[in-house]
Design a protein around this nucleic acid. Structure first.
Lengths: 215, 215
DNA sequence: CTCTGATTGTTTTATATTTAACACATTTAA
DNA sequence: TTAAATGTGTTAAATATAAAACAATCAGAG
């Protein structure tokens, strides 16, 4: 397939396209033009066309895009047609919430285990799964062919745990810990730094306040 | 102060600077050069200097930056020195987790209420706070001068609730619901679309797999 | 004090991203 | 059957972002 590098800016927009296309699908819309979609999503039609064309032509001139086809293609690009095996490391508030909330199975993720070092949690059952001690981690990962580790542990332990998991064959981290993981370049890290996000929010609040003050 | 528009790309980097500066502060490092910081953070020194200079000169030529001073200035820019009043709308897994996990108070956020439409939750106590019914929402927001609403409700209700909250004076949304809120331009929205983030992850996994296959 | 090396602030250049423009294939309606 | 309308794919222009280069200024040594 294409081997030219596609920028992360484009990739970041794909899930949003997928969401809107899913909604169109649900409303039984069969075809849509970049123009219509652009109005719906509040982006330029030009950007939509160019984004899609990074991966080859999905539309038809004079006709537009077939919603179902486009949806499937984008899903394929994003890799959510494949199955991934996933564990959660850290069974605190956030870890438990993600386990219950994310509905991993619906998107092809096999949620296979949850771990914590707090022994008071060991009996606890979360989504048909018992919280396991960290001692089990390495053998479990090796035995169950785990791709993805969700890190919901405090930052103090995160880097070390990540190193260990890389050695066991984990290929990707969904990192909620408030540190930068330092992993080899073939390992994927997707950070979700919630407090960073909240700071952006407060920045924009004060900015808007100043704007209105100046008017 | 400056009224030139600073790009969100710059703003997105500030929390990370803050984090590293905080760590330096904790290790009693008093001064640092853009060069040193760049090695630590794995970005170019040029970018660091340019980012900081968007807000005026914080350093001293021939010397570097005073860690403490720089930290405080960035905190000020991000608006985390001010107090914000915050509620959580949606006391499900994620809402409860954020209430317990985020430690809002440490960053100057006053977490003042949590709401849900599920009446089985009404007795529930979360962080010294009882889950309130949605009927209370409007009067509560008006009476308590709420700035920020954290939306952890399903997407079906989110848009309507946001509209209602805007009318009551809420200025900003930290939106975890999987929809785009359609609010006036003076209202701030910071989206945290977790499933989008997870899709980026899977995209990058398959990309890296292909890369190694081609080598 | 004065000089030198260090390191910022700022300008310039390069790269990346977004938007606009348009040629041409396809549909649709007369 | 044909011509106008539609709407993609693609190339070009504009804008935004990042990196490099350099000039101004300060700390610190002697």
């Amino acid at each position: 397939m294409d081997d030219k590098n596609i920028s992360q800016a484009v990739i970041s927009r794909l899930p949003r396209y997928l969401r809107y296309l899913g909604e169109l699908k649900d409303s039984n819309v069969e075809r849509i033009s970049s123009q219509e979609l652009s109005q719906l999503m509040n982006v330029t039609a030009s950007q939509i066309r160019q984004d899609f064309n990074n991966f080859g032509g999905f539309g038809q001139q004079g006709y537009g895009y077939k919603v179902n086809f486009l949806y499937d293609e984008i899903a394929k690009i994003l890799g959510i047609n494949k199955t991934h095996h996933l564990i959660i490391v850290g069974a605190g508030n956030l870890g438990q919430a993600l386990a219950n909330y994310m509905n991993f199975e619906r998107r092809g993720f096999h949620f296979t285990g949850i771990f914590d070092c707090n022994e008071t949690l060991y009996g606890r059952k979360i989504r048909d799964m018992y919280v396991q001690p960290m001692e089990n981690l390495e053998t479990f990962v090796k035995d169950n062919d785990i791709d993805i580790a969700v890190l919901t542990i405090p930052k103090t332990g995160a880097v070390k745990v990540a190193d260990k998991l890389v050695k066991c064959g984990v290929k990707a981290f969904w990192n909620f810990a408030h540190v930068d993981l330092n992993v080899p370049s073939d390992i994927v890290v997707e950070n979700v730094h919630l407090s960073d996000s909240l700071m952006k929010l407060t920045y924009n609040i004060t900015r808007k306040e100043q704007e209105t003050d100046n008017q």
